[in-house]
Nucleic acid binder design. Structure first.
Lengths: 249, 249
DNA sequence: CGAGAAATTGAAGCCTCTCAAGCTATGTGG
DNA sequence: CCACATAGCTTGAGAGGCTTCAATTTCTCG
């Protein structure tokens, strides 16, 4: 993982607990806290955390083929993961919001199988994976959380693999985005899209023109109101209905 | 996991090493053997293994919503995993050959998110997941192998998610199948398809008619020779070429 | 041998893509 | 401050690949 702008920090563990608060967005802290681990165990976890960033729009966090040594939790901003096919066409694998983990698909090959780029200003928590795996042998709760996270990602990828209509895909994308924002305490109905229409198209396996047309159609039908990157869900119920075949709940 | 026909076995660990040979198809044994664990550690692993089966064609191994408590390695036969959408349409998630693991996507929810059915006579190695996770805390090699397996499956699902032509999908399906058979010591060029055309169609997100037409086209072009469920790859190089955009190597 | 499932083949239609042009916002330099 | 350049977005028209519907053939198995 490249660390173009690692901030100098004298001590990764601050006495005032700032670091712990910072990492409350990370899935791991939740796991550990909920397991009732003592302060020493939490220290162990936080010692292997590096806060890196900011990455600016367009900056790459890692590239396909880079040696894998760490996973990372998004603290702020949006990360896009993608691969390029033979013809240079971009295939977007996912968008990663604050609280979500990137790099899990790199474990098996010990190399990142995709590129990761910041869509806006991104802050990350970097976890050395070897250290984390070692720690997990002493913290069953952490191990279990890692298994859960990995298992989750298997299912996510299968979502958009079905042959759904462009409308269903778009609705599913918006509903999923909305849920993930809501889970982090953001508005569930007003979304700021940090990605371009082309990014969305490459993610949903549609042409950019189709994305444009679908958004227009959804707006004409009163399901959403969209202005540039700002999107409001006017009829969440009908959107969920549209997305149901894709999301399955 | 339902176990309709568990065979009675007096002692899961046979002195003559039969069990070890049996499980040589399981990814876990490889991991442990290659880590240089002592016999006691291997015993631990094999104590939590249950050999179950046979499951006959059409028999379900687990169903969507079933409580998750074990993953399983296929020892013999083919397992199809699938979900049903609202309209009853089957969406095939994958075909699992001997040596491959099923149930990894159930960890996060503690329930199986899909159905698993035997396409022919299937024998399984059942691993209690809680026990295995516990054992993994004492065997870092086993933990690493579990992480690798989970990570692998994340990437696999993304393969067919791209928008490829019917020919590319079919070629990728055949090439991947061929490689997996070859890895297990079977012929890489002569395949016996255990699944129906409709199964393949539901996996590749095509209409059954399209599968039929594509196979015919590939045969007319001299890439394959197909007779019912028997398929011979006549020009593996061109097939790989066709499949490259999907498989990426 | 006959019933039923699976597979094949043909014709028509539709959804999405491609290609091409125009539009809008942003930012830069004169 | 405005003209211009650029990237992103939108809109339209036409083409194409896959699906759907329907009918027929082939295979399997009791």
């Amino acid at each position: 993982m490249s660390t173009p702008s690692r901030r100098p920090r004298p001590n990764p563990i601050a006495d005032d607990g700032n670091e712990l608060r910072f990492c409350s967005t990370c899935a791991f802290s939740d796991a550990c806290l909920s397991q009732g681990y003592d302060k020493a165990a939490l220290m162990d976890l936080h010692v292997l955390v590096e806060h890196i960033g900011p990455f600016h729009e367009g900056e790459h966090i890692f590239r396909e083929g880079d040696e894998f040594n760490a996973i990372a939790a998004v603290r702020a901003g949006t990360v896009k993961t993608y691969v390029l096919d033979a013809s240079g066409q971009e295939q977007v694998l996912g968008f990663h919001l604050p609280g979500e983990i990137i790099g899990l698909n790199a474990i098996s090959e010990a190399r990142y199988p995709c590129n990761a780029v910041a869509l806006d200003t991104v802050m990350l928590c970097r976890f050395s994976f070897p250290k984390m795996a070692l720690l997990a042998t002493r913290m069953p709760g952490l191990q279990a959380q890692l298994f859960r996270l990995l298992s989750q990602d298997i299912g996510k990828a299968a979502l958009l693999a079905g042959d759904y209509s462009a409308d269903q895909r778009m609705a599913a994308f918006l509903v999923a985005l909305s849920r993930r924002f809501a889970q982090r305490g953001f508005s569930a109905t007003r979304l700021h899209l940090t990605m371009t229409r082309t990014d969305i198209a490459n993610y949903l396996r549609l042409a950019p023109e189709t994305v444009s047309r679908v958004l227009k159609r959804l707006q004409e039908d009163g399901l959403i109101r969209v202005d540039r990157r700002e999107l409001e869900m006017l009829d969440p119920a009908r959107l969920e209905e549209l997305a149901r075949p894709v999301l399955r709940h």
